[in-house]
Amino acid sequence: MVRVEFLGPIKKEPLYLDAATLQDVADVLSSDKEMKEWLQSCAVAVNDTLVSSLETPLCDGDKVSLLPPVCGG
């Protein structure tokens, strides 16, 4: 199982999914209507490192984080 967490303004509890790659996470989230807009604008981190490929492999216990648009300062 991987833990998928939603950061900042996304009001959603963490999900626990069976996923071998980020593609599997994308498949689950893209069928979730409330996530559709967020998926357009979110960056993704695996175990707190930003990633850029849906082929990123996932292992049991990994943490996937969705980071919506930022504005510090």
Partner: peptide, 30 residues
């Protein structure tokens, strides 16, 4: 990775229009 909200009438309102997608955003959009 910091998210900003306006405070109005004691409520937090996400400052979406002033926020910037991190490079590489949209990866999961399918």
């Amino acid at each position: 990775p910091i998210w900003k909200y306006d405070l109005r009438d004691g409520e937090r309102i996400y400052a979406a229009e002033r926020s910037t997608p991190i490079t590489g955003s949209g990866l999961l959009k399918g």
